[in-house]
Amino acid sequence: MDKLNNELKKQAIAYGLCEQWTNDWSESHNKQELIDMWLRGIDFAVENDYPTNEFIKEHFEPELLKENHIFVDSPFNGVNLDKKVVVCGKSDGVLEFDKFSTCDIYIRHECHAHIRASGCSKIFINLYDGANITIKQMEAAKVYVYLHGSNCHVKYEGEVFVRNSR
């Protein structure tokens, strides 16, 4: 485990990891702790394509990724997923939110996602790298989409707020 931890730390430093994160990175993290760190620093990870999809698939078990709502080159289907959801590679699936659920979603690469939001749910979606989504907003749900790049594609029904992030 220390080998994986050290390899990820070395890669992050090469991409310009800030001094605080470098100093706070302990010498021993298990895979769940590494995933927790990655999700906390998801903006850095996305900006640097760190680690690569191939690296993630090689070093992290599909079950562990799924438990953490991380989908890499895989189908996905989720209802009221909490925390963050990260969809990468060539993934395709459906996410549904209702009642009072909230979620931050990061969709990248050649992914296709279909999102349904109803009730009083509040969903924040960040799109990168040519990702494609369709959204159906119903009832009092709030959906906010942030486009990171001009090659992302959004189709929607209902009241959806779409903004360019740059």
Rank of each mutant, 00 (worst) to 15 (best):
R116C: 15
H148P: 04
P62F: 13
I42Q: 07
S118A: 14
I135E: 14
S165G: 00
A131F: 14
S150G: 05
P75K: 05
G158I: 12
E7I: 05
Y50D: 01
C120W: 15
E67D: 12
A113F: 14
A12V: 03
G16H: 03
F97M: 01
R166C: 07
K83T: 08
F100R: 01
Q32H: 05
G130L: 10
C120T: 07
K142T: 05
L17D: 09
T102R: 14
Y146K: 00
I56S: 02
S101M: 04
Y144P: 06
L81Q: 12
N80F: 10
Q11K: 11
S26E: 13
E157Q: 15
G158P: 08
D98R: 05
V87K: 07
W21Y: 13
N23R: 13
L127C: 06
I133G: 12
T22L: 13
N126I: 09
V162I: 08
E139T: 08
N48I: 08
D129H: 03
L65H: 12
A141G: 10
E110L: 05
E96M: 13
K9V: 09
V160Q: 12
N80T: 10
V86I: 00
D82K: 02
H114V: 11
F71V: 01
A14P: 10
T134Q: 15
E19S: 14
F100D: 04
T134K: 11
F60S: 02
G93C: 11
G78D: 04
S150L: 12
H59C: 05
G158Q: 11
S26M: 12
K84D: 06
M138K: 12
G158N: 07
W38G: 04
C120P: 09
D2E: 09
Y156S: 02
K10A: 10
Y15I: 09
S74N: 02
K155F: 15
H114A: 04
I135W: 06
K57Q: 15
